[in-house]
Design a binder for these strands. Sequence first.
DNA 1: GGCGTCTCTGTTAACGCTAACAAAAATTGG
DNA 2: CCAATTTTTGTTAGCGTTAACAGAGACGCC
Lengths: 335, 335
Amino acid sequence: MAVHGPAMTDVARLAGVSHQTVSRVLNGHPNVREQTRLRVRAAIAELGYRPNGAARALVTGRSQVIGVVAQNTTLYGPASLLAALEQTAAEEGFAVSVGSVRNLDHRSISAAVERHLSHRVAGIVVIAPVESAGEALERLPKDVPLVTVDGDPSRPVPLVTVDQVAGARAATQHLLDAGHRTVWHVSGPTDWFDSVGRIDGWRQALVAAGLEPPPPMPGDWSAASGYRCGQMLARMPEVTAVFTANDHLALGVLRALHEFGRRVPHEISVVGFDDVPEAAYFIPPLTTVRPDFDAVARASLQMLLSQIESGTSGALRQTIAPALVARESVAPPRH
Amino acid sequence: MAVHGPAMTDVARLAGVSHQTVSRVLNGHPNVREQTRLRVRAAIAELGYRPNGAARALVTGRSQVIGVVAQNTTLYGPASLLAALEQTAAEEGFAVSVGSVRNLDHRSISAAVERHLSHRVAGIVVIAPVESAGEALERLPKDVPLVTVDGDPSRPVPLVTVDQVAGARAATQHLLDAGHRTVWHVSGPTDWFDSVGRIDGWRQALVAAGLEPPPPMPGDWSAASGYRCGQMLARMPEVTAVFTANDHLALGVLRALHEFGRRVPHEISVVGFDDVPEAAYFIPPLTTVRPDFDAVARASLQMLLSQIESGTSGALRQTIAPALVARESVAPPRH
DNA sequence: GGCGTCTCTGTTAACGCTAACAAAAATTGG
DNA sequence: CCAATTTTTGTTAGCGTTAACAGAGACGCC
């Protein structure tokens, strides 16, 4: 169907040079006379020539594409990360190809990575927040530049991650500082490293304060599961402070507490995680922890590019510290 | 750096056939003896051979990649759409390359499309909800399969769109049916077609009921702007029903009403649009309109694929009807 | 002025695959 | 059992680009 566009030779003919000279102009090779360069540029513009990435990828062995493997790109965190990644990549002249997978199991991840490798992507970013993804990554070809985001800290793979532990510690400490005797936790799914890290940080803060952590209540990131946990928390009179693993869980908790007539923050304080744009408009506005997705994206891409350029794939590690955003959902406990 | 993987000839040598036979096996060509096919399969597996998409794209003129141009992929709507698109494309054996742009102006769109064309994508999906995107699309090469989503209904470009008008009409009618004398509207940015359609539908429902539409209050999709509008609405005693152009606006409105002590739904009913997963956990649970993003994705992809296969690019049009989801934020007005 | 040394440009050969054609092998029919 | 057909396999030629090398001017230096 498509009338194929002009190729390099067409440009060359029009400019009265060889196709190689056109190639040199395109790739910013230094040794081209200014006058020639201009003629080539003019010919390119006149024909509306557009280089063929496939041909280039074939001969160089890599395309200017970065593959991203992610699970549920509808969640706020992954979506933000993906968007940031795409922006950053575009600035570096790379396109981003998304390979989202339904499950983060071994097979799905491998299949997605395979698809990317078929297209000879320059590198791969895996947003692999769960255990089952880890093993898939280790048996990947070693020669492909790869960075994992929010992945398994215990595996020897280049990793960029939000400092979940520090964020959770800050959130918990913030509640303790307000005078609460202890802090309850509604966690994310326990096979996510994000969840594990947040549970850890919460525990650390409590233990450091000489407190015995109560059992965490497991949620699944959704407001629905937060609501269910909230219904239980609302019935427990001793509960005065709750830290939830993300803002949507917090929303569910807030709703349950509201239904049970337990006032936030007067009776119970709540802190979330993620700082979704709506968090400031929850009832009441939610104190939360804000991860810097842009920073994560920049760090991952930089790590990936350095691998692509140098060829080394050292097991680097970079951690991005999140920031506490204080709003009205936290107050001292009543006595 | 990378040790290049085995090529087709390597597989052929191992299987004792010609590379063409390997190609035939790979592409499911019928005339290959079963025994040969198995030998080739075995050789592929043994070598861990992976076809080179770049080479294939070069010779066939198209890669198995679909380019998507979108703006803010962090918003719930676009993110859901993108995810659905990616899923559907994967099922058809296509990868999705995202070209997100900061602004939907002419230059940005063209640049993003150019990038995709360089990679010889098989087709392009433009999520182009604003006016300024339209012109960019018309001067695009005509021979590239293209589908716009939520784009300009007045342009002769293949378009898949959520039926904003019907959705808004249903939302407004739902409020009128509950007994409200009129319905106020907090709109999205007026350069988005989504907003325009929703304003239209709202107006239509009011006019059909013989009512004079009050002036719409312009928001920008964010909870923050919803909050600002909500502050005004809360001060207007005659307001009993509000339809907001999306759920986040509704959240802001709910928060403002709550602060002013106006109870929802007892004093004021609110209906949103989008049915974000959290809407059921707002205070109170939000009645809203749910667009079927999966259906939109399927329709767009199908439209794109039929263009890719047939070569025709008729200005098709497909509209996906959204569904009203009734929850507790709507009640009859008090008298 | 001849000669080495830059700077610039051209020629040729891949990269890994598919399409088109050609040849060989298997199958059929009389 | 041989020719006619059908099925299966092989051979060759590109696709559009970059890399490696080769050639042609321009320039300076003895």
